[in-house]
Simulated scan of single mutants.
Amino acid sequence: MGIAAFIDAVEDQQKTVTVLNRESVDPLYRMLEGMFDDDSVTVTESQDPDAPGDVVLLRDEQTGSLAISQLGEISETLLLVNSDLYVTGTVPLAEVETPEVVAHLSDVTFTVADKQKFLLIHISRHIESLALETDDGVLHSSFQRLSRIHDERGTLRAYETLANSGVGVHVYGVDDWEPPGFADRLSVHAGDTPELRDSWFVVHDGGGDERRMAALVAEEIGPNEYRGYWTFEPGLVKEILAYLESTY
């Protein structure tokens, strides 16, 4: 079973995103619809005279669980920014904040490209930040090409910070880089297999705490187009970790 098989095997959770008492302009709402444009995620709006405005509710139709965020949080974190925010290191890893609604869109398979790819970039940083905050355990990260670590200033800073923490960091990808000065504090898994060329994953083992386990797994299915999901389900994270540890 490879990374692609983990993506194929996930059973999507049906989720509904509802904007309650929308006060924001139409383009912002359409951006929200476009960000979560997926068969498993329905975006709607509703009115409730007893509730505040621009509240975003996420409901898992299987479990009935509910997550709540302000639309402004989602806008400032995802809708009105681009990947340069993290590529340039404008947001330090320790300061990454993820709206509850976005984090709880776990266990849904997304196909993203261009602007939408920022959703997966943000979740990658969320998991890296979680590992840094835990300051323990092991983080596995695939870059497709190892040169991406130093090509992007924000990524270089993030992984230097992680390498200097209590987290054991494993990096994966095609060996096309000039290793940075902190490479001796990384466990490097270099190769040129189709899986390493196409896979994007960030997996943290929780440092012994199942509540802090997390994984994003995705594969490139076209030029700059990815299919994948993220999960905080310990059983699934353990299966992904077991695969990585036995294969690499």
Rank of each mutant, 00 (worst) to 15 (best):
P99L: 11
V96D: 01
S124V: 12
V91P: 06
E73C: 07
F110R: 11
I68N: 08
T88I: 00
L85C: 04
T98H: 00
T98S: 02
V102M: 12
V101Y: 04
A67L: 13
E61L: 11
D107A: 14
V87F: 13
V112D: 01
R125A: 10
P99D: 09
Q62A: 13
E76G: 03
E76H: 10
F110C: 11
K117I: 05
L105H: 06
L119N: 10
Y86I: 07
H122P: 05
L93W: 10
I123E: 11
L93S: 05
T77E: 03
F110P: 07
V108G: 07
A94E: 15
I123D: 08
A113K: 11
N82M: 07
E73V: 05
H104K: 14
E95S: 14
Y86T: 01
D60K: 07
I74G: 01
V87I: 07
Y86G: 01
L85T: 12
I74Y: 02
K117S: 13
L71Y: 01
H122T: 05
T109S: 15
A113Y: 03
L105Q: 04
T88V: 00
K115A: 13
D60M: 08
I68G: 06
V91W: 02
D114Q: 10
L80S: 12
I74K: 03
V108E: 11
T77M: 00
G64M: 09
F118S: 03
D114S: 14
L80V: 02
V96F: 04
A94F: 02
V96A: 03
L119P: 09
V91R: 04
F110Q: 12
L71V: 00
I68V: 15
F118P: 05
A103M: 09
L78Q: 02
P92T: 01
L85E: 12
V112R: 06
T111P: 06
E97N: 09
V91G: 04
S106F: 08
V81T: 04
N82D: 15
K115E: 15
N82H: 12
T88Q: 11
V101A: 08
S124L: 09
L120W: 00
V96C: 04
S83K: 08
T109Q: 14
G64W: 08
I123G: 00
Y86V: 10
P92G: 03
A113N: 11
S65E: 15
F118Y: 15
Q116W: 10
D107K: 14
G64P: 09
P99C: 08
L120I: 09
K115R: 14
I74W: 01
F118R: 05
A103W: 15
E100F: 05
S83Y: 06
L79D: 05
E73F: 05
N82W: 08
Y86P: 04
S69R: 06
H104N: 15
S106G: 14
T90N: 10
G89D: 13
A94C: 02
L119C: 07
P92W: 04
F118Q: 07
D114R: 08
P99F: 01
L119W: 13
I123H: 10
L93F: 12
I123R: 11
T88R: 12
I74C: 03
A113D: 13
L119T: 07
A113S: 15
K117N: 14
A67P: 06
S75P: 03
S83A: 13
T88L: 09
E95C: 02
T111H: 10
F110D: 11
S75Q: 14
